[in-house]
Design a binder for these strands. Structure first.
Length: 195
DNA sequence: CGGCCGATCCACT
DNA sequence: GTGGATCGGCCGA
């Protein structure tokens, strides 16, 4: 199978909103526990670094956890939410600018049975990658992998034939960021509606 | 050092 | 529609 990993330059985009839209339709792949799984990215959210009250790096905050966000674009920022879920983000922009794109949903492509099994261990339904917590679980991602390069053999993103048209991208306010004041209203959430 | 709470999900009443 | 699970990160003392 031909691999078309996104180039390093892709992750250096300076507009995180643009990066969020460009990631829609791309293929997120993982090779963890010796198993290959992947899915098409269908929902993302932009987090605009120091200017964004909803971002962990708002106001230029540096903590051990957020340090990866300041790295050069092209690494994974994975952190623990609610003590249970690992949420997967793509770090973008140049070194020193903590932009990140949260991947909220994928449509499973390769290794569907593996993903179902990973989910079935804990739950009994069939919806295994429709949310940010569940997609990480399905792909075998864990917050301990934060900082992993997206051009590694563990986690990477591939180019696809799918190029969403403007019509197919629906934007709206982000989820669960009510505490962010005015920034909570920004249309930084993008859904790729496939027909 | 202690306490609060989060970019969520699921099983219920 | 809603509350419980569950624990590391962060902040204040």
């Amino acid at each position: 199978m031909e691999r078309k990993k996104l180039k390093k330059e892709f992750y250096l985009i300076e507009d995180v909103v643009e990066a969020s839209k460009l990631l829609l339709g791309k293929k997120l792949c993982t090779f963890t526990d010796g198993l290959f799984t992947s899915g098409i990215i269908t929902e993302t959210e932009a987090y605009n670094g120091v200017f964004d009250k909803a971002s962990h790096a708002y106001g230029g905050r540096h903590t051990p956890r957020t340090e990866v966000m300041y790295r050069e674009g092209g690494v994974a920022y994975i952190y623990l939410c609610y003590g249970i879920f690992s949420l997967f983000n793509v770090v973008t922009n140049k070194k020193g600018i903590p932009n990140a794109v949260l991947v909220r949903a994928i449509t499973p492509v390769d290794g569907i049975e593996i993903m179902q099994q990973r989910r079935k261990k804990l739950y009994k339904d069939n919806k295994f990658a429709g949310g940010p917590g569940t997609l990480s679980q399905a792909l075998g991602l864990h917050y301990s992998q934060t900082g992993t390069s997206l051009r590694s053999s563990e986690i990477w993103i591939e180019e696809t034939e799918i190029i969403p048209s403007k019509k197919e991208i629906i934007s709206g306010p982000r989820i669960g960021v009510g505490y962010a004041g005015d920034d909570a209203k920004l249309p930084y959430r993008f859904i790729f509606k496939m027909d």
